[in-house]
């Protein structure tokens, strides 16, 4: 190994540690949230460096993008000041014990995680041959998409259902069936930010669609696409674009459509004497694309619903 790549890896590794420090040590919520955003960017770079473009995209979109947006929202909305209200000495001592315990648990879990990764790495070879054999049956060219929507489509279906139910849960604690929040106007932002948001939204739309349709042959797919499209919706809402009527009318159907289409597509198997979720290799690619399009709609709606749930679900002071 030459010096150049090693230096890059070293720099990235130190960058992760520094960013993690920025995400944990500051005393104000806003600084913590910013540190978290930086951490997301650095970790995406690490994944890229490891050659996992799919994971890098997912990390950037979900871990950095959506979760970052939620944290920034919380930092802006909650009362300014220290992140913890451990003001008296006893609380501080408690806090120290908890921090120590947290660090200890974190270290143990990290070591275990590293152990798993180190041991799992040689096993990947065992999956290479069956994957190469069965790839032609899946109707897609990209390995990650084949795993997500052919070999382990059932897991993906249940995970999408978890997201759908998260959306339903957010609606359940809300007022008037849960879409009341969409009516609450957002706080006005500075005009520069609004312009930025309006310019950024079409770009995000394009990026989201590209990620969706690229997924069959390159890195990308419904999850990454859905989170980018959700980010677009958040930007539009923040920029004051009137989405209320659309949200109230289309949120529920959009939430459910991914899971419904997925299961109906899976039903083709038992109807034609095949197992559940089996698609004929001839049109499996088409089936997977259709399922992915609707999954993207469902994932976008689910994530956006969770974001809307950040506003007071009671809807009144």
């Amino acid at each position: 190994m030459t010096d150049g790549p090693a230096l890059i890896d070293l720099a990235l590794g130190l960058g992760v540690l520094a960013a993690a420090g920025c995400a944990l040590l500051p005393r104000t919520r806003f600084a913590l949230a910013t540190g978290f955003l930086v951490l997301g960017v650095v970790i995406s770079l690490v994944w890229l460096r490891l050659g996992s473009v799919d994971v890098a995209l997912a990390e950037a979109a979900l871990g950095g993008g959506i979760l970052g947006a939620v944290l920034v929202w919380l930092a802006v909305r909650s009362r300014p000041g220290a992140a913890s209200d451990a003001s008296d000495s006893r609380g501080r001592a408690d806090g120290r014990v908890r921090t120590g315990l947290g660090v200890l648990v974190g270290v143990v879990l990290s070591v275990l995680g590293a152990l798993v990764w180190a041991r799992i790495y040689p096993q990947i070879a065992r999956w290479q041959d069956p994957v190469a054999q069965q790839m032609p049956d899946t109707g897609v060219d990209h390995g990650v998409t084949a795993v997500l929507l052919a070999f382990r489509a059932y897991d993906t279906l249940l995970e999408t259902a978890v997201l759908l139910m998260a959306g339903v849960a957010v609606m359940a604690v809300g007022r008037d069936g849960g879409l009341h929040q969409a009516r609450i106007p957002v706080h006005p932002l500075s005009s520069t930010l609004v312009t930025m948001a309006r310019v950024g939204a079409p770009v995000l739309l394009l990026a989201g669609l590209w990620l969706l349709f690229a997924g069959s042959s390159e890195s990308g797919g419904a999850f990454q696409s859905g989170s980018v499209l959700c980010a677009m919706l958040i930007l539009l809402r923040v920029a004051g674009v009137p989405l209320t009527v659309t949200t109230r009318r289309w949120m529920r159907p959009a939430l459910a459509v991914g899971v419904v289409v997925f299961i109906l597509a899976g039903l083709v198997g038992p109807v034609t004497g095949q197992p559940w979720l089996a698609w004929d290799p001839q049109w499996a690619g088409t089936a997977i694309l259709v399922v992915e399009v609707f999954l993207t709609v469902g994932i976008t709606a689910g994530l956006y619903m969770v974001y809307l749930g950040l506003d007071n679900p009671q809807g009144a002071p």
């Binding site: 065992r126 999956w127 069956p130 994957v131 069965q134 049956d137 795993v147 052919a150 070999f151 382990r152 489509a153 059932y154 198997g269 095949q274 197992p275 559940w276 979720l277 089996a278 698609w279």
Partner: peptide, 9 residues
């Protein structure tokens, strides 16, 4: 499921 046997399916 999907006709894919373990360990893949």
């Amino acid at each position: 499921l999907g006709g894919y046997e373990p360990p893949l399916g």
